[in-house]
Design a protein around this nucleic acid. Structure first.
Lengths: 169, 169
DNA sequence: TCCCGCATGTTGTCACTGCCAACATCACCC
DNA sequence: GGGTGATGTTGGCAGTGACAACATGCGGGA
């Protein structure tokens, strides 16, 4: 699409597939994210993705891993524990579909080492700024819980987040 | 199977389908939960479920709603806010697959009124014992976050839960 | 008592999906 | 300049969700 001549070989197919997959994820939800639809979105044949991902689940895992990397970067850029909490919630609110994929039931982190690694990296950023372990875990769990409830539509819209965040010491 | 004569009409197909679906969910995960596999599990033809559920998603929603009802019952039976927190975590740990379905990305609560209702009922039990709204939401989010992190294997095994739960006021 | 309406379950079918196998095309390196 | 391996393509198969048409038999009126 972007290159001047449409060669037989795409050249940048892997990132193009990931981009198409994320667009589909946002537009249709995880159920609409079929490998063939992703291939169509990238303008290649229905089997081309198999040159870059072993299976549909592997593609989802790569997408989730990329999400964790982005989350880790956002956390690193935020100052202090409170700032990271807000950055975490902002990320989840800005990319709800991706966030749900990252923590959703479709992917078992155990079977995707790269995914587990990316997730662990994001978490280590979070715990690096906490004074004590229990406090860091409590803050993380609280923020993660709020993000999940918001993503699922269970969180009342009129809640002032700070009034809840300050309830955990 | 259990009834003496195998009539043309099953008679108790709806609960039988839900039971088969839950068994499949536990055994194979949400991906293996196909409508046809559920029908096989209940010993009926591949289209019989459509007499009781409009779609595969509707079946999942019904299963999740049943999960919320069970969760609400467990919460009702637990005394005090701390007790309910523990009951919530126990439920999530005892039925991880169901819990993930209830809060997972496959179901959009918005499009299933009965599911939203069942979820709201469970949440109202939780907030009924809290002093104020922000406190209830904080407690719920904290517990929900812990449950989610545990289900995904991100929660350290050596953490004493009470040391985290008491961080919420 | 008969019979007929209608809920329930069945068979048949279609488009779509994930994945495997075989083949086509091209970039690169000797 | 020719071959070799990575990258994409075409073809095909079994399984899936959903729709349509048909079969079955329970229960309520006459």
């Amino acid at each position: 699409m972007s290159t001047s001549k449409e060669a037989y070989h795409h050249g940048e197919l892997r990132p193009a597939l990931l981009a198409a997959a994320e667009a589909l994820l946002v537009a249709e939800g995880p159920a609409g994210l079929s490998l063939r639809a992703v291939a169509r979105g990238a303008g290649v044949s229905h089997n081309a993705p198999y040159r870059h991902f072993a299976s549909r689940e592997a593609l989802l895992a790569a997408l989730a891993a990329e999400g964790f990397s982005r989350l880790a970067a956002a956390l690193r850029a935020a100052p202090g524990l409170a700032g990271q909490g807000r950055a975490y919630l902002d990320f989840a609110a800005a990319h709800p579909a991706l966030y749900r994929l990252m923590f959703g039931a479709e992917l078992r982190a155990g079977s995707h080492p790269a995914l587990k690694l990316a997730a662990g990296e994001a978490f280590s950023v979070l715990s690096g700024v906490a004074a004590d372990r229990a406090g860091a875990l409590a803050a993380w769990a609280l923020v993660h819980g709020i993000a999940g409830l918001r993503a699922d539509g269970h969180w009342p819209a009129d809640v002032v987040l700070d009034s809840v965040l300050t309830r955990v010491t």
